[in-house]
Design a protein around this nucleic acid. Structure first.
Lengths: 202, 202
DNA sequence: ACCTGAACACCGTTCAAGT
DNA sequence: ACCTGAACACCGTTCAAGT
């Protein structure tokens, strides 16, 4: 065989296929990607730095949906809130990537750039340097936790008859479909109030 | 061969070994567990409901370190704060289980019981039923996100020279070792203030 | 440069067979 | 009841070989 006239594989197509697999099955494998693209398993390794490299490509792809313009909004608190909403929307679109991405450290340059800009925003707003990362980390925790929560609202809580949890069942029913979204808004509002109180008067 | 005079395997030992493997390598496999316990891979399946069953046993084991007594503290906000701290400590002791546990829904009865009690606490404190689950979910997101963040404080942010992120590097340095812990306390304080403001005057 | 095809050490799971 | 040993379909990764 050897080399085809038109390439079967590239990083773009590999990433798209991996994302489709994760959206459908919650996971991906290199052979599965190769099969869908009509290539051999080994061929994938010519374009990508192994399985971990594909995970990093997924992180970039998902994070690319975060609107960087949100961080230019004024005042600073509106910017942070808009960023959080855009961040949530990006991951909520592909929530099953989250457990995958959480297992490995952030190396993707574009993701690091977003954090660089968020740090700049808060420093320029007058926050003490010591307070900046805890705030951003708390925001990140809130966003990722909420996105994951949004993933499987019906199945995340298996309230079986074998274990009687009537109050939990009631509270879940009362909260309804919007529970995970509500939890995000509650956490965001709480964090923003805290941030505003923390900021030195400027 | 056949059956030994004294059993090689039981759920207790399987869980302990799986937890050790996850603590060490971030993951486990059924053959690895069998090998450490001196048994054959297939034998594990006589005690446990497959790999997913072991994951559920891990959830129970880790969550068993949460002190249920915290939910009896008065007043209600001190109880919720104590619970959150105990919850964080339990998962921070085995942070690498978190990505594993997040991929599957909560079925463990003991974990569901904890939530049942937390719901009861907030209902008795006078919260509207609609507000209870969003609050608890926000708290859970905060705890799990923070525990994960505590897992690999040095490696979670790979600030390479190839991608210049000087402000991020400064902010990380300023926050220091306690960054993830600070992020948790920031988020918790914010959420508790919000909860107190939300509660109908009683 | 890009892909094949085969190899290797590893998975999760099942099941007849032994004591 | 508890374990072995073998089987099956699947992984991730490497690499000589082809065009």
């Amino acid at each position: 065989m050897g080399r085809p006239r038109t390439p079967l594989l590239d990083r773009e197509r590999i990433t798209t296929t991996a994302l489709q697999l994760v959206d459908e099955h919650g996971d991906f494998s290199v052979p599965q990607i190769a099969k869908r693209l009509g290539a051999q398993t080994g061929s994938v390794y010519h374009h990508v730095d192994g399985r971990d490299g594909i995970v990093e490509l997924l992180r970039e792809r998902v994070a690319s949906a975060i609107d960087p313009g949100t961080l230019d909004v004024t005042p600073w608190d509106a910017a942070l809130e808009a960023w959080a909403h855009s961040y949530l929307a990006a991951f909520a679109a592909h929530p099953r990537t989250i457990p995958l991405l959480m297992a490995s450290p952030v190396r993707a340059p574009r993701v690091l750039e977003q954090y660089e800009r968020a740090v700049t925003l808060l420093v320029d707003a007058g926050f003490a340097l010591v307070d900046v990362m805890p705030l951003i980390s708390a925001l990140e925790n809130l966003v990722l936790g909420s996105a994951l929560d949004l993933a499987a609202p019906a199945t995340m809580w298996v309230v079986t008859e074998s274990t009687p949890t009537p109050r939990l069942a009631e509270a879940l029913a009362a909260a309804g479909e919007g529970r995970a979204n509500e939890a995000f808004e509650v956490g965001l509002k709480a964090l923003m109030n805290h941030a505003r109180a923390l900021r030195p008067a400027g």
